[in-house]
Design a protein around this nucleic acid. Sequence first.
DNA 1: ACTGTTACATTACAGTCGTAATGGAGGTGG
DNA 2: CCACCTCCATTACGACTGTAATGTAACAGT
Lengths: 192, 192
Amino acid sequence: MRERWVPDARRNAVADAVGRLLNRGHGTFPGMREIAAEAGVTTGALQHHFATKDDLLLFALDHHCRRCADRLRARSAEGPRSARQALAAIVTELLPLDDDRAAEASVARAFVSRAATDQGFAAHYRAQREILHGLLGEQFGRAGAPDPTAAATILAQAVEGMRTDCLLLGPDAVDLDAVLDRLLPPNTEDIA
Amino acid sequence: MRERWVPDARRNAVADAVGRLLNRGHGTFPGMREIAAEAGVTTGALQHHFATKDDLLLFALDHHCRRCADRLRARSAEGPRSARQALAAIVTELLPLDDDRAAEASVARAFVSRAATDQGFAAHYRAQREILHGLLGEQFGRAGAPDPTAAATILAQAVEGMRTDCLLLGPDAVDLDAVLDRLLPPNTEDIA
DNA sequence: ACTGTTACATTACAGTCGTAATGGAGGTGG
DNA sequence: CCACCTCCATTACGACTGTAATGTAACAGT
């Protein structure tokens, strides 16, 4: 074997194709042939790499969750900044402001719909939510908020509304500063 | 004509069936035959009352939006209470705490997914959002909040996260009081 | 060289989809 | 009585669905 495949390279490409189709299309899960066409492969290849369509979709969800979580952790650990700036960076990373983040938001929304009845999908939601909650709570604690975990919960919930408002009403519909003003202690300075 | 049909009685029944199927099923739009079975009619009847499936779905969306808006207005105008109590009542009305409200939340979520690319569905989102925003802003103004419309925007956004948290993590995952504490002026008394 | 495995491509199939087409039952107006 | 309209039920159709089945080319091990 000359240069061994990173075993999930194709699978990741397929997962990206699913994300692109989900936010370009009508929010419903695309068909196998559509996924194959977008990924530039055939349905036979899909069948080879994924046992069933649900396996494919679950992998796509996991893929996007991991990618998003990595970006969030990167933003959280990025340089020395005020807690407010870190929170703003984290939340902004979740807003659908470009195609990649729009795809991730579409993926998240589509899979939440299914998580209501399917436990496998619900587990991913909880895991992703816990990561976000942890990162937000950490920053709120750093800012000296009286109840960091409560503030993190509220901000995490508000983020979901901001995502859809940003998507359907435009980026001007979300005022992140206004949210942070009400969640951070008033004496916190946001310089440095 | 002895007692004329209220022309949309059947249509409303169908729309209710769509709501039930949406929150019971996997979040995807049900098929025509499934809708017909749930509504207790045949697909021929559906074809008679709706030109196409999208017409049916748009009517269902409109139906649930109107129902929800009516309930929100009723809660808003209900008796003399503190602004905080009114806000809590409005938000609680939106949480999926029983089957009816869960159906409405499912309908809203499914249609938001489609609103991203379909203008007809997006218009309903904006209209519904405007009604909610108006009611919330009114109460925030009554409470003497410094910027009622900003507070209303934030609460409306947080509601969406609370809806999904309530659905996927259980009702205990939402702490409405914590949200209102941060959005209402601290000197506001919530008695009477 | 033979064997086996991996990684696909192609084809086929049973089922579901939305909807068009047809027919009929019941009331209504002339 | 008869045409007519509304309100449906039934059937049918072509497109599309996920997936099973089969073939095949490349490569690895022995």
